[in-house]
Amino acid sequence: MKQTIYLAAINEALREELRRDEKVFVIGENVQQGTFGTTSGLVQEFGKDRIMDTSLAETAVAGAAIGAAMSGYRPVADMMFADFLYIAGDEILLKAGKWHFVHAGKVNVPVVVMAAMGGGMKIGAEHSMCPEALAMHSPGLKLAVPSTPYDAKGLLKTAIRDDNPVVFFYNKGLLGLPGEIPEEEYLIPFGKADIKREGSDVTVVAISRMVHLSLEVAEKLKNEISVEVVDPRTLEPLDIDTIIASVQKTGRCVIVDEDNKRCGVTAEIFAQIVENGFDYLDAPIQRVAAADTPIAAGFLEKHVLPQPEDIEKAIRKVME
């Protein structure tokens, strides 16, 4: 194993896949320099034809990647901020997601749409979102949401090799997160949740940066409550079996995500647990998610986004 950080793990996944398959290329706004560092340094090895800077035009970025994917390439479109997916909704949601199906399987769209999501930088309503529900709701898009350097590298490599469109949301609040990854090559299959901490009293299903907040709370409460933290790692496909198995063991569940609460990821996971594991529950499920308001910037951000105190409160509530 070797030490790395989250953004370097993403960078390494891209580098390895660019070396492995010449059909892979990276396209986006300022990807040569790299806004968040995830694509930095690649142009020196792979050149401008494979690490392509575009105009500041999201429909062109997404459309160029999707159109090239339909023509036999395996592009990674870097949309910069996850919020910007909305700009290219026609390309990503209506075309990449649907075209394999509506054209009876005659067309494949092996594209990765990569973007940084999440708060913590205090940069407000249009640069802090976690629009996971947007992708999860739209048929035809897979969705990976890694919380560690290990998961980020393994899931991104799998995403690039997938013959379907994959939305890969990395979290800008985790860019500098340290962690270990193997020296040798590895892939992580989609649809396999990872139990980030074992426990017996309550299941906390947590996503992306919320995994770390939940682990922090679990550690704080360890002498009172034994908390199990389950990280789905991909939301489509969703490993509901592992989540239900954990709920069956603990009988109690809290779901934590940074997307809006209303119609958000927590609502979908809540519904699936109730549909498939109602009898295992000893208490109503609690949800911790972003408030149903736009994300306020600066000092106010923490009043909108989930905080460790909110998670602790929810855990105590299900334990009552």
Binding site: F25, D49, T59, A60, G63, A64, I66, M70, S71, Y73
Partner: peptide, 16 residues
């Protein structure tokens, strides 16, 4: 819709 997709299609054609 075809403008951005044709752009990518043209990019692929040039690359190929």
């Amino acid at each position: 819709y075809q403008f951005p997709l044709a752009l990518g299609n043209g990019l692929a054609a040039k690359k190929a």
